[in-house]
Structures are given as C-alpha cells and as structure tokens.
Write a protein that binds this DNA or RNA. Structure first.
Lengths: 171, 171
DNA sequence: AGGTACACGTGACTC
DNA sequence: TGAGTCACGTGTACC
C-alpha cells in the first residue's frame, strides 16, 4: 500500500522469545481446537466425511434432530395427562347417564364441576360402588367421608390409595 | 534444511493466477467454516463464551445430554409397551383359565378376549392402577394375585370387595 | 501489558 | 492435474 516500506505503529514483539511464545501459544490453541473437533465428531453418528465443515454441519443438524425428538417425547408426555382428563370426562358422562335426575347435595355449587375429580358410581341390587379420583390435598378425604356418612348407607369396604398426584378412593 | 536454498520438487504454482486462486479458495473455505461455526453455536443453548473451542466443547456436551435424555425417554416408552404386553398376556391367561380346554390357541385368538372380565388399567408416571371386575368364584383371587406377584411391581395397596355377584379387585 | 483469540497467506498432502 | 483440505507462522485486535 505504502510503497516500498511497510511501517508498523508499534514493534510487534520486542524480543524474539516473545515471538516464540506466540508461536507456541498458537500451536497449543490449534492443538486444543483439533482435539475438540475429534471429540465432537465422536458423538455425531453417521458421520460420513470427516471434514471440519462436515463435522460442524452434521453436528448442528444432529442437535436439531435430537431436540425435535425430545420435543415430541415431551408432547407425548403431555398427551398422557390429557388422556386422563378425557377419561374423567367420560366417567362423568356415565355418571350423568345413571344418575340423571337425583343429583345435588354432593357438591356445593354445580357450576364449578368442570374439572372436578373423576367420579364413578355403579349399582347392583342394593350394593353401591363409588370411586372418586381427586387431587391429593389435605381435607378432601375427610370431607368426602363426612358427606358419605350423611347418607344412611352401610359401608362394607373402603380404600384410599395414592395414584400419582391423585388419590383413588373406593367405597 | 538444505542450506541456503530451499528446493522445491515441483513448482507449486506455475502462474500467480493459480496462486491467487488458491488464496481465494482458502478464503472461501475459511468463510464457510466460520459460517458453520455460527450456525452450530445457534443451536447450542446456554452458550456463555463464543469461543470456537467453547462452541465445539459445549456442542459436544449438549449432544451427549440430549442423547441421554432421548435414551431415557425411549426406555420409558419401552417399559410402557412391556406393561401393555404383560396386560395382554394376562388377559389371555385368564381366558385360558376360563376355557380350560383350548391348548395352543393363545396367540392367534385375540377376538374372543372381548368378553373377558372388565379390566381397567391406568398409568400415572410410575404408578399403575389396576381394577378387575370378575365373577365371584373360588380361586380367582388367588390366581390373580399370583399373576400380579410375577411382575416386579411394588404393591402399595390392594382391596377385594364383593359387589353383587362379582368381585371388585383394586390394586 | 501479558494473554487470548481470530483471520490471513502459504506450503504440503491427497484423491 | 487440479481442486480440496489441513497445519503452520504471522499480524492484529481486544481485554
């Protein structure tokens, strides 16, 4: 650019030992870099070409693929919970089919029975089967038992067992 | 090595236009390489330093993490399928118990499993809820319990209660 | 000011 | 032969 002489603002390295240090440092850096490259290529499956560019590209592609797969799995996990909800809704329909007319007295307000615990009731002669699946929370069991005791039924058997985040109450 | 003059077996580049081509090619290669670097760093979350070495290392670490996660998910999936298989097998066993006569038609005769006793199974994480509603008959409960004990599940609660002409077994 | 990091041009190797 | 890839030494910039 400047003609015959290339001027330098400040002398790059005063002593050559520093220059040598620079060379060694750079060598070390390159060495570490290539080491990381082989380490990365080791965790990328189906790596055809061992190019640096190919390693980088395939690694990125593989990360995308894996993250998409993880997303699908987590979505499936969510669908399972939704499945439980649908099941609850279904049971509620059964309840409505059986009970239809005689309701009330179970819960204070009927309007909030949207996401209510799953309740299943079956009749056989004089036996009544009641299964309640509700959230695991203090006081629920006591309230339910107190409510059931208001009816003049004789309880032959009852069990309360934890089922995941819920309680499965069978009377 | 060779004293004052460094001999070259073959002149590396005969014309300088070729040398220039070489320079340009190398430049292009470097450009693509850095481009891949930024593309890779884009799919690696929580990347603190934007070092090339750090990008490589964190990308490798992230791939390991993701693949481990996928492995866990697929193992869970496999366990669930195993549970379903066990359930199907068990239904057929009950069928065999009821029929007593059929000898080898356990694998193909899937259509007749519809009339089986009502069986309800629910999953929530690692908890399994099993309800069996079958005829009140001697030996059924013992057989079912023996079958359940074959699985390596830990039974947290179980109840057997009469319900009309049937037995309601909840595990 | 010393350390770290990057891009560049260049020689060498390989298919 | 020639295009593609790599490692090296070097110059420069940013804390």
């Amino acid at each position: 650019m400047n003609g015959k002489r290339t001027k330098r603002a400040q002398p790059l390295y005063k002593s050559q030992s520093n220059a040598q240090d620079h060379i060694i440092s750079e060598r070390k850096r390159r060495e570490k870099l290539t080491q990381r490259f082989v380490a990365l290529s080791a965790v990328v499956p189906g790596l055809k070409r061992m190019d640096k560019a190919s390693v980088l590209g395939d690694a990125q592609k593989h990360i995308k693929y894996l993250e998409e797969k993880v997303g699908e799995f987590e979505e499936q996990k969510r669908e399972r919970r939704l499945e439980s909800m649908v099941l609850a809704k279904k049971s509620k329909l059964i309840l409505d089919d059986n009970n239809q007319s005689s309701s009330s007295s179970c819960c204070e307000d009927d309007s909030s029975t949207l996401d209510l615990p799953e309740i299943e009731v079956k009749f056989s002669d004089k036996d009544v089967f009641i299964k309640i699946l509700c959230e695991k929370q203090k006081g629920h069991v006591a309230k339910i038992m107190a409510e059931v005791e208001k009816w003049n039924f004789s309880i032959t058997n009852s069990s309360v067992l934890p089922f995941g985040p819920t309680l499965d109450i069978t009377i």
